[in-house]
Amino acid sequence: MRAEKKWGFIRFMLTTLFLYALWLLFTASIEPYSLIFGAVGSLLIAALTYNIFIARHQANLRYIIPNPFHLVLYIVILVFFLYQSSIHMVRAVFTGKASPRIVHFRTRLKSDIARMVLANSITITPGTITLDLNDDHLTVHWFFCDTSHAKLAGEKVKGRMERFIGNIWS
């Protein structure tokens, strides 16, 4: 029971810190009134929502806190992937060559946040859209499908991203 209370407190503090960092980023002012108001507001919101924000079963800090260096690196790589698959897509639009298909595969990422980031990365690159994410089971609409083997399709769609995301929330 004690460990659970402690874990609840840690989740509460992490939520508060995250909200306060966002407040500082958006207001971009260091007046005392703004700082105090932000602190009170983030404490109040964190007390109400920390159970939803970080689920209780995420019982490992490494699943929640990202590695900052890999996070920044991944944003740059994601922009590169975005342009790479956009060029493929432009070619497909003007030639009309396409083989759209829905593929199902699993991911081996453990953390909820990492799975969410993987699904969003798949959606943001033109050519693949996540239709459903259920635990570790992804349903993806793939515009350039060339295989009917589930594992191979999964490797082609998510392989390059999954490796980088695994480094962020290892």
């Binding site: 897509m89 432009v90 033109p126 609409h141 515009f143």
Partner: peptide, 19 residues
Amino acid sequence: FRFPDPYSRMQAGGLCGTT
């Protein structure tokens, strides 16, 4: 305007809406 179903339109529209 070229592709016939919502999924493909979404894929192509992602070019305009994201990139």
